[in-house]
Amino acid sequence: MKYLPLLLLAILWEAVVQLGLVSRDLLPSLSDVARAGWTLLREGDFWTNGAASLYRGGMGLALAIVVGAVLGIAMAWWRPANAVLSPLVEMFYPMPKSALIPVTVIWLGFGDGSKILLIFLGCMLPVTIGAFNGARGSDRVLVWSARSMGASRLRMLWDVVVPSAMPEMLNGVRTALALMFILLVSSELIVARQGLGYLIGYFGADGNYETMFAVVLTVAFLGFAADRLYTLLMRRALAWRD
């Protein structure tokens, strides 16, 4: 029921094209797009390109989460780390990461490496900032409690600071997840020989707009599904918060 507006939008799309209100050159009808999508799904091309994108996105995001979380917590609990990293974080956070697309290509070429590096760099800071804020806010008496029950400093970091940082860090990861799709598709669109973004560009240049729209819709759906799934898992992981 919640997604009824989406259904209405789909009907509206089909209607304006069928009634000739919008030229088919600008917007193919939804039914044509669906048909093209079906053909696409039965061909191997879509799956190899999808797998390439998934690999790049997954690797880049995983690296961003691990490194971002470690840096954020280190910044919150170790002054030298904070002194070195916080000016860098402040400078790079507002920078549009898509500007790095040509840079990563110069460094690592047209393949997976440049995409993974770009996604890693682009997605890391939201995680770092979330982990930093969460870790810095961990309650002093919780730290003391753990220490008074025999936890070493390092152990306490894992037992108390990491879970304390979790809610804000997981919110940062959600932002990173959305950024990952943006960076993945735009980098593949600009310089790549594979990937869903590449397919969009390829079919667009080819004048095959039905198929191009089908890939665009697929990417939109993947982003939406990933976010829903992530929110569900996050809610479960944070069930302890009332």
Binding site: D139, V141, L142, W144, V160, R241
Partner: peptide
């Protein structure tokens, strides 16, 4: 140690 605000691990 027992603290005024319990200091239980909420997770």
């Amino acid at each position: 140690v027992v603290f005024q605000h319990f200091a239980l691990f909420p997770w």
